[in-house]
Design a protein around this nucleic acid. Sequence first.
DNA 1: CTGCTTATCCCCCTTTTAGGTGATTTTATC
DNA 2: GATAAAATCACCTAAAAGGGGGATAAGCAG
Lengths: 204, 204
Amino acid sequence: MITKLFIVDDHYMVIEGIHALLQHEKNIEWVGHAMNASSCMAFLQQQLPDIILMDINLPDTSGIELCKTVKEKYPSVNVVALSTFNQQSFIKKMIENGASGYLLKNASTKEMLECIEMTMKGKSYFSFEAAQTLRYQPDDEIILTLREKEVLALIAEGLTNPEIGKRLFISTTTVDSHRKNILTKFNVKNTAALIHAAVKKGFL
Amino acid sequence: MITKLFIVDDHYMVIEGIHALLQHEKNIEWVGHAMNASSCMAFLQQQLPDIILMDINLPDTSGIELCKTVKEKYPSVNVVALSTFNQQSFIKKMIENGASGYLLKNASTKEMLECIEMTMKGKSYFSFEAAQTLRYQPDDEIILTLREKEVLALIAEGLTNPEIGKRLFISTTTVDSHRKNILTKFNVKNTAALIHAAVKKGFL
DNA sequence: CTGCTTATCCCCCTTTTAGGTGATTTTATC
DNA sequence: GATAAAATCACCTAAAAGGGGGATAAGCAG
């Protein structure tokens, strides 16, 4: 069985690299590539591949959004996320949006082939490191409510509690409560450490 | 004249991609690759290439550090930075550490060849976007003193002014002064916005 | 229905920041 | 040796943040 493979990545070198690594594989057909989200969608209107290797960082839309759109319109297409970052939040988001796997860009040919094979069998595949991230860091997962995320974003913008209150049409004391809860969830004791941690964990 | 090319990048796909893109170039000799800083240094003890394409993000040392070390030990070797990020601070730092050029990973083959050619002629080459970043954003360049960088790092860790003072053996009021100067330089009005901006600009 | 989470609100009090203004010493540079 | 930049220290005031406590209403799941 021949797997039709499509790639979305804005880096020419990566596209060429994957192409070079897989060109001698007989059961993989290279149906094309796109360097941004919109040309990817345009391609899919004409032909559906079996697997899309999709970079998370794209110039127009993020891979996380593109993945969602693709899976909604073409549920039969398997999406495998392709990324440099081994960040838990990204991995989680891609899975939520229907990705079948997560491949880091430092993956070997063997890993790539395994990933394609597994995906075609309907199973999930995650790069070793990505899998470890998901497995061994369950406790540092931070779940914020919608409101908390809003507040956090406004804090990062530099707004004070009274300003945030006005913006969200709630009392200053409420903002204060949210803020304290966020600090507790991140296990930090002030705003500086909070913003730093929030960025590192992909919230900002 | 044949250019001896060496690559340092922790992503197998990128190495293969560049290899694929340049393998038919007759005046470029592919002398090898390394996937981290230490094996790069080990290679250089045996053979010196003309140009090193060096990723900024490496697993052990950062490319910025590696560039410095390489140029100190082997000044004849030209280092071209290779990166996904079009961030001013990184570009600036690489130049300061002796890099001859800055190539973005979405560069075309033509750009790569141009870059190699220019570098061999002793000139600098910067990807179009990287050059624009340097040219059109001169005013948002933020220059911090050594002390200010130290203080900023400790603020990001979540230390308060008294704590920072103890750590650096200076008075709390001095820390306060530094802190105010940093806020002014970043043109922000509180810690939250400061940390956010500092991360975006590559200080943290 | 009961417990749980979310979102809302309020109080007290202490510490920390931020804005303003000013000054001294060290260090590097011309 | 003069000049400029960096680093140091100080005082005042007001605003904001953080730590503690507690309360209520709405919505949801077992």
